[in-house]
Design a protein around this nucleic acid. Structure first.
Lengths: 343, 343
DNA sequence: TTGTATGCGTTATCAA
DNA sequence: TTGATAACGCATACAA
């Protein structure tokens, strides 16, 4: 037996065979230890684990991926460039996945046409991701995904109309209801909704909560304005609504639009909250500091991300799905942008 | 020859051998085509390319990674949770990398201690990433990286004190100079700097630009305030500076702090820009919509991301480094937060 | 309970 | 210019 055979070259990363040699077993036994195979003698296992520790051995992911056709990579399909919420969830997703030994690869959707979605998913499947988190809250992304019938587990971070087991989100409807009810409680009767894009599921949910609250309070509904989530659009909407003047309060579907809206009102000489009250949604970091300070709905985006990973990993491993309590949005009454309505 | 041998199973992804069979060559020849090997007959190459197209063949990345010890994955090391700039660069990085056939994996640094940095880099190296983009603008991250002497190419998206070839950034010093000069041009003499954290390279650069401008104009320097980039801290600083009252203008190192600062001034009864002018840095989406609208410095973060990938890929492929023109920050004079100083 | 042999899809080495 | 053959590091039948 040659010495060269026993001593791994310096600097080379140890392989399963190095571990086997050191532990005095076959590389196959090491593999069993690594994969928690049931039938293995405890003391053998300990010897192997010791060797693993000594060599600081870590399985080669490429080799494992090659043979299993699975990669221990979670793919994140994102269509939310710079949105505050999804971005906040992302960090949590990444961290939670790493803790469980998965790495995360991101793929941004340039547009949300069916072709682009299909191509993106195929790309991730080709990279043999173990699972996919969808951070693309557009309705059609959701439908396309369902239609693709991919064999990779996926979790969608959004509210589906009929929320199913593989979707997750804070209760957007309840949050929007809170916001609207707050305005109603302040005595407002003519409340306009500055909504998100038609294609977005969360936009629909927030609109629903708004409509529900109005309905329950027996208040008239005014046609909502369709925005695009941006502050620029909010500004435009403010100018427009100031011209119409048919409301005393606006519930904006997100803070960015709410801030732009207040800017538009300001430009048009409409006082907030003197003439019109405004409530936002999301609680972005500047919400507490703009003028007027923004009353809004706070959501726990990181927790949402963590839950997404928990759900996805259960799916991947074939374990039982965790059951989560409701993730209730919270009302932040800063009450500078919203004031009692004039009777 | 059996038919079973020629017809790949339905649904199975085609391998290099399927292509070889269809093209009537050996799998090795296909490999040569894939890797642009010089010595190959053009017509053979065409046959192979045809077969590739017909089968819609794509190389298996795991197999390739296994044999080459390289993964076609770019690792992004990030220590900038939710910062506007880095987040904007991220999307561009991801897109640019994918266009070139690389996928992107992100790794967030929970803290920036040397141990955490080392562990993170080792993790990425273990995953056999082809290169690393560092989005962690803290000074010590930079030093630790240098010290690690990793054999994986990396690019750092930040301004180093002595900018070297492997760092990239907009000219922060010039931007800060612009901002400060703007205030000087408005007639201000007592200008305070609300700086970023001491550990951050960009904070240092912006401070330098500020100091340079003051020096050139022969103006007195006032000790800067060290902030943490957050709007909350800006608010605190506003209250504090209002008490001091020893300045007529503040240059905040980022927009978030600038907005919080204006909030603090407002709470303290200090009028912006009547009593004190404020200029920010970054041009975040709400900057144009807060009140007062924020005069600030605009940076092209996506372009920064694209350049990072171009530089990194050149390094990885051993090609010549691309030479970029200066990426000059731009002054956005919204001039509501900043007004002429009283003499 | 453990070991042997085989193959995953690709690149690299060598020979033709 | 091409092809046969051997790795890469691991998991998975199958045998012992």
């Amino acid at each position: 037996m040659e010495v060269r055979d026993r001593a791994p070259e310096r600097g080379r990363v140890p392989s399963i065979r190095d571990v086997a040699r050191l532990a005095g077993v076959s590389h196959q036994t090491v593999s069993r230890v690594l994969n928690d195979h049931p039938s293995i003698r405890p003391e053998t296992k300990d010897r192997v684990l010791d060797a693993i520790a000594v060599l600081d051995y870590r399985p080669n992911r490429a080799a494992r991926a090659l043979v299993t056709s699975r990669s221990d990579v979670i793919g994140v399909l994102s269509a939310t460039v710079g949105e505050f919420g999804p971005t906040s969830s992302m960090a949590a997703i990444e961290e939670a996945a790493r803790v469980e030994g998965y790495s995360v690869t991101t793929l941004n959707l340039p547009d949300t046409g069916p072709d682009a979605i299909g191509a993106a998913v195929r790309q991730l499947v080709r990279e043999q991701v173990s699972g996919i988190v969808v951070l693309a809250p557009q309705v059609r992304v959701f439908h396309v995904l369902r239609g693709l019938a991919i064999d990779v587990p996926f979790v969608s971070l959004q509210t589906a109309s009929g929320a199913t087991a593989d979707t997750l989100s804070a209760d957007q409807v309840a949050g929007a209801r809170l916001a609207t009810q707050h305005l109603i409680d302040l005595g407002h009767r003519d409340i306009v909704h500055l909504a998100g894009p038609q294609d977005w599921i969360e936009a629909e949910s927030r609109m629903r909560g708004y409509l529900d609250a109005l309905f329950d309070a027996d208040l008239p509904t005014i046609p909502p304005i369709r925005g695009d989530w941006t502050a620029d659009f909010g500004h435009f909407a403010g100018l427009e609504l100031a011209r119409r003047g048919d409301m005393t309060a606006v519930f904006a579907a997100n803070d960015l639009m709410a801030i732009g809206l207040m800017h538009g009102f300001r430009d048009a000489g409409v006082d907030v909250p003197g003439d019109v009250s405004v409530v936002g949604f999301d609680d972005i970091p500047v919400a507490a500091h703009v003028w007027p300070t923004l009353t809004t709905i706070h959501q726990d985006f990181p927790e949402l991300g963590r839950r997404a990973i928990a759900l996805l990993l259960a799916e991947i491993r074939g374990e039982q799905r965790p059951v989560f309590g409701p993730l209730a949005p919270r009302m932040l009454t800063r009450d500078s942008s919203a004031a009692p309505g004039r009777r």
